[in-house]
Design a protein around this nucleic acid. Structure first.
Lengths: 154, 154
DNA sequence: GGCAATGCATGTATGGTTGCAAGTGTTGTA
DNA sequence: TACAACACTTGCAACCATACATGCATTGCC
């Protein structure tokens, strides 16, 4: 691993490793309670709010039958709950329980706190330049599909 | 997702998602052939060179018996091979096959190429500031354990 | 009302990972 | 040479994710 990358691509790869470490650490605490596939269901659920079984299965690219049983475990763990849709009695709505929401929030907060802690080691002006540069990078990276992250279970 | 994060932590989180997307895309092609746990064995193997079964199992935090059977599948797939250690006939050395090395290299190259492509959308001076900022961040992030990435299977 | 379509759950089966315990062969040592 | 330690493999067992086909209840439409 280079100490002083000579080009921006090397520097980016270096940072991507550091950031992946942050993500990994933030998620690892949750993995004591749920599996990674289960956690990613909770994350999707957290972003979407209550949602039908079939739609949620589509979001995580899971087979309906597979997903029904996965959800059995998540519900049994107390992280989410089934309820009948007010629209149709054949539709089943899934929603996070307080425990499920807390699990997701804890990971998010841990991630944010750790990144803040790293940045606080820099001077305010350095932080400004980091922020500006990262925004440049994010814009250059442009659109990406959230779906892609699913292969990592994030 | 904010369009214009007001602080550096938000900008960092934004970039971490973009970088995770890059990592996910680069790895997804390999997942047609091996599982994520299997791929991470190949990555460790690629970095370490030929290594004993037990040492490799430790590196990926796997039980010896578990790992022996996982390696059966990796070897059966043609990505790595067993050989008897010249030092001791009870030691088994694992090494990447050309196919295994190619699989890892392909992912690495894809990742590097994609990051380069993103950066090329910026002007040279912008690239400089991105590189400088990322180095600042990497230094601030400081030491981190490569082991942590294992929870993500990377 | 009858019938097809929809939404979900269940039956059955496969493959992967994991762990504990036991077994086989090798090495080092007393 | 006998015995303990070491390195790896195999037996056994469990759990999770996944998929295809099937079954059941509900809904919408003719």
């Amino acid at each position: 691993m280079k100490q002083h990358p000579t080009n921006a691509a090397d520097a980016t790869l270096l940072v991507s490793r550091a950031l992946l470490g942050v993500v990994a650490r933030s998620v690892s605490s949750a993995l004591e309670f749920v599996t990674l596939p289960q956690f990613r269901v909770l994350v999707v659920l957290s972003a979407s709010g209550p949602i039908r079984m079939g739609a949620l299965a589509d979001r995580v690219h899971a087979n309906q039958s597979t997903f029904s049983r996965s959800m059995d475990k998540i519900v049994a763990g107390g992280w989410a709950e089934r309820s009948t849709s007010p629209d149709s009695r054949r539709e089943v709505l899934i929603s996070l329980t307080p425990a499920g929401r807390a699990l997701v929030d804890e990971v998010t907060e841990r991630r944010h706190a750790e990144i803040s802690a790293i940045l606080e080691r820099l001077t305010p002006s350095e932080q400004d330049s980091v922020r500006a540069a990262l925004e440049l990078f994010a814009i250059a990276a442009g659109e990406y599909s959230v779906e892609e992250l699913l292969v990592l279970g994030i």
